[in-house]
């Protein structure tokens, strides 16, 4: 799998790395147990600061998408896909809660909010 970064993008470089590795796991390109390049290799290949790649790997490790096995290297976690899924569900629930709270504060009723969401989902489906 190839990793592409855009340093002019508004998205931080370490976030681009995290996102693309997670996408690779979800799409099945990065199977559980696949060895990942070392921080030094990835940083040198992409001409990035080592700390940027280290930060991305740290986030992926915290999210249990990758696991580091000392000198053996860094690998895709055995349950990486389910961890990403549960993480995404958790993030979605949090963001939804924030949004609903904001909409209530703006004076919308429960029925109106439900209608807005249904419309948004219908647009997305088409």
């Amino acid at each position: 799998m190839d990793l592409e970064i855009d340093v002019s993008s508004l998205e931080a470089v370490y976030e681009q790395i995290v996102r693309q590795i997670q996408q690779g796991v979800q799409q099945g390109t990065l199977a559980p147990g696949t060895a990942l390049p070392s921080i030094r290799q990835l940083a040198d290949d992409l001409d990035l600061n080592h700390n940027t790649v280290a930060r991305a790997y740290k986030i992926l490790e915290t999210n249990r998408v990758i696991r580091t096995a000392g000198r053996k290297g860094t690998f895709i976690h055995g349950d990486a896909s389910s961890h990403i899924h549960s993480r995404n569900s958790h993030d979605a629930a949090y963001q939804m809660n924030e949004l609903v709270t904001a909409l209530f504060e703006k004076g919308l009723s429960k029925v109106q909010i439900e209608a807005v969401f249904k419309t948004a989902l219908a647009i997305k489906r088409t």
Partner: peptide
């Protein structure tokens, strides 16, 4: 100058590979 868009393979290149 370094390119704005850069890409590399995620293939590990350690001696053991």
């Amino acid at each position: 100058p370094l390119p704005v868009k850069r890409s590399t393979s995620l293939e590990r290149r350690a001696l053991k590979d």
